[in-house]
């Protein structure tokens, strides 16, 4: 909840800032007016400081929570896998098998090549994104306030939903992008890979026309290639970020009297219910698109005509 001193705008901004850890250069004037006499690695104390830290900044909250969620996923599934019995699956194993079966079904529907990598990748994407998105179900101030109290710093930035940080979603989507390129080269050879981006989509039987078409083809193909990871990452980020902002706005209403406060309670509940749909859906979409893109990287026959 916004404390008395902070305005609504401060509250929103505070909630949209990650816990950035980076280096501030020497001579930098900090938020409280102190001037640094040497470069120092520290937590950003304002959005401006976070901006000024440059590229080599780490969002500790994003990394921390995504790693925690990843470990939760790995631990649960690993435990289930270790205790898995062929006869009479129960409890955790049934649930895990349900998820695995669902992912496996989706993968075999979309991806028609042989790969030991795609299905586990899809499972990881689906569960991990789902778990990271699920952090949204927690009331927006619980974890940040707990963290602030624990650290003894009321100003601590703490964003608990990793997927509302574009770094997290783009980090995943660019990994997928690298996989697309790697698999394309592996499946089609380097020449085939180059051909795909120069002699496509426009292609004739005369080599000199083809040569003229290369720049045009290349531009088109590269744009469509780069659009894949960007749209993949930004779609997830956009959906989660927008939902988060609505949650923040609803949370502001809690401080605005009994009537608006109880209305906020109803709204928060309704929005959370809506997210019961959004959260798995976005995880599913991210997984399906990952599979589709990788399937396209594997498709050889379709490209050579």
């Amino acid at each position: 909840m916004a404390s008395e001193a902070t305005t609504s705008i401060d509250y929103i901004q505070h909630h949209l800032q990650n816990m950035a850890f980076g280096q501030l250069p020497a001579g930098y004037v900090r938020y409280d007016g102190t001037v640094l006499d040497q470069p120092v690695w520290t937590l950003a104390h304002s959005s401006k400081e976070a901006m000024d830290m440059g590229f080599w900044t780490f969002h500790l909250d994003t990394l921390g929570w995504s790693v925690v969620m990843g470990i939760v996923f790995c631990a649960v599934f690993w435990l289930a896998a270790r205790r898995a019995a062929v006869t009479s699956p129960r409890g955790l194993q049934s649930f895990v098998e349900l998820v695995v079966d669902f992912v496996n079904q989706t993968v075999t529907d979309i991806f028609h090549h042989k790969s030991r990598f795609i299905a586990p990748l899809s499972l990881t994407v689906f569960c991990w994104v789902f778990l990271m998105n699920s952090m949204k179900f927690l009331p927006i101030d619980w974890l940040p306030m707990t963290a602030a109290l624990t650290a003894g710093d009321e100003h601590l930035y703490f964003k608990v939903v990793p997927t509302t940080d574009p770094n997290a979603t783009l980090g995943m989507s660019f990994t997928v992008f690298l996989l697309i390129i790697a698999f394309s080269i592996r499946e089609k050879g380097f020449l085939g890979f180059v051909k795909e981006y120069t002699l496509h989509p426009f292609h004739t039987n005369k080599w000199y026309v083809n040569a003229l078409l290369i720049p045009f083809n290349f531009t088109l193909e590269v744009i469509s290639l780069v659009a894949k990871p960007v749209s993949l990452g930004l779609r997830l980020f956009g959906n989660m970020y927008a939902g988060e902002i609505i949650f923040i706005l609803i949370a502001i209403m809690f401080g605005a009297g009994l009537v608006l406060g109880s209305l906020a309670g109803v709204l928060q509940w309704a929005w959370a219910v809506f997210h019961l749909l959004v959260i798995p859906l976005q995880a599913f979409v991210f997984m399906v698109l990952t599979i589709v893109y990788l399937a396209m990287a594997f498709d050889v026959a379709d490209e050579q005509h």
Binding site: L16, N18, A20, G22, A50, M51, M53, G54, F55, W56, T57, F58, H59, T62, L63, S66, V67, G70, F73, C74, F77, W78, A81, V100, R116, F117, A119, P120, L121, L123, T124, V125, W128, P162, D165, P166, N167, A168, L170, G171, M172, F174, T175
Partner: peptide, 26 residues
Amino acid sequence: MNINATLIGQSIAFIVFVLFCMKYVW
């Protein structure tokens, strides 16, 4: 919400989890 090295960290975590899943879970 600036793009920074978090992206790389996330990427590494992603790869580690996928490899774990590929080896010990799936």
